[in-house]
Nucleic acid binder design. Structure first.
Length: 361
DNA sequence: AAGCCGGGGGG
DNA sequence: CCCCCAGGCTT
């Protein structure tokens, strides 16, 4: 499939998609706005996240932090609390960092070109293209999961997605298609098509505005596109969690600035080693992490949780400190908090699965 | 190129 | 259960 052949189809594809988008576009809050800050926030929120899942977060976030300067002035804890439960928390930390960068380097206004936008933390080629085309009308393409599916079907591309040659080709095609006028609407129309019509399974080809252009459908291969590489199995780990109580307060720690769930608060604990009992693991982890000797009480809960590349079972036990004063080697901060204060801290979802059990009545 | 990074909804 | 979502960053 050569680019110049695509260019011949381009006018029809543009016209059909733009007209369909004009008539059928969902009424999403960030589409009512021209504010680049709103567009930026929506794009970060929606990374690897369905629109329906991100929507309530968008509304709440803008009530709390209505402007870019307000975001820059907020604490990271406040931003993480607003992000709590959504996952991929690095997005929130980068958003916050980027806001401060924009205040310092761009006088508080987002840069208008995709090239410069991409210098902000958390803004890659996709997000830069989305902001630049939607908020600033720059003729740049976007390629997200939806667009990959639409393009591999429309042009019957059998190259496996994820490989650099394939990605390069998809970006080149997307670039060839995006028009000089209304680039943002066109980019959104491709994504909207992928989200609502050209779905991963059982695409609704009968309703598709580019039905007649679709090379994969002509061969009945639409559900075989895109071609993906096989996934790897996810390992499972047993975790022990110590709910340490003292004077009706519980010990929580803030996770370090790197890696999984960075910056979030949690109950201390760690991985069960081979052949180890829960009790032995709790004693060892509390000694290693907190420098305290604990007595292990009853089990509070055993909760399962699935991450992208990891499955865990949290075995949660009541513990009391027998000797020593807790000082964490792995957390940036420790606090003793009453259950009524839990809401002030951002906890990972896995912790929320047992948190309510600690609240009085 | 491959791994890491959350959580949820749909089939 | 498996899939994948308006991806980015690190190694």
């Amino acid at each position: 499939m050569e680019i110049h052949r695509i260019m011949q189809q381009a006018p029809h594809i543009r016209k059909s998609l733009l007209q369909w988008f004009q008539e059928e576009a969902r009424d999403l809050p960030w589409r009512k706005s021209q504010d680049p800050y709103h567009i930026w926030l929506s794009e970060i929120l929606l990374q690897q996240t369905r629109v329906d899942q991100g929507l309530p977060y968008y509304e709440r976030f803008l009530v709390a932090l209505p402007t870019l300067p307000a975001l820059a002035a907020a604490s990271e804890d406040e931003v993480l609390k607003l992000w709590e439960g959504l996952g991929y928390y690095t997005r929130a930390r980068n958003l916050h960092k980027a806001a401060r960068q924009v205040m310092e380097q761009h006088h508080g206004s987002l840069p208008e070109s995709a090239e410069i936008l991409q210098l902000l933390p958390g803004v890659g080629r996709y997000t830069a293209g989305a902001i630049a085309s939607i908020a600033f009308n720059e003729r740049v393409p976007v390629v997200d999961g939806n667009v990959k599916r639409v393009l591999t079907r429309l042009f019957n591309i059998a190259m496996p997605i994820g490989e650099s040659a394939t990605e390069k080709k998809l970006w080149a095609i997307a670039d060839a298609l995006v028009p000089e006028s209304a680039p943002g609407d066109f980019n959104q129309s491709m994504m909207e098509l992928g989200a609502r019509i050209c779905t991963p399974r059982k695409p609704d080809c009968d309703s598709c505005p580019v039905f007649s252009e679709c090379a994969a459908r002509k061969k009945g291969l639409q559900e075989q596109r895109p071609v993906k590489k096989p996934r790897k199995a996810v390992p499972h780990k047993e975790i022990v969690v110590a709910v340490i109580e003292r004077d009706r307060q519980y010990l929580i720690g803030r996770r370090g600035p790197d890696g999984m769930l960075a910056g979030l608060w949690e109950f201390p604990g760690g991985k069960l080693e081979a052949g180890e009992t829960h009790q032995a693991a709790l004693a060892r982890e509390c000694a290693e992490e907190l420098g305290v000797e604990v007595k292990v009480g009853g089990m509070i809960a055993s909760v399962k949780h699935v991450y992208t590349h990891l499955k865990v079972t949290l075995n949660v036990y009541r513990c009391t400190i027998v000797s020593g004063e807790a000082r964490s080697n792995v957390h940036t901060e420790l606090k003793w908090v009453h259950p009524e204060e839990f809401d002030a801290y951002a906890f990972p979802k896995a912790n929320h699965k047992f948190l309510d059990l600690l609240r009085p009545e």
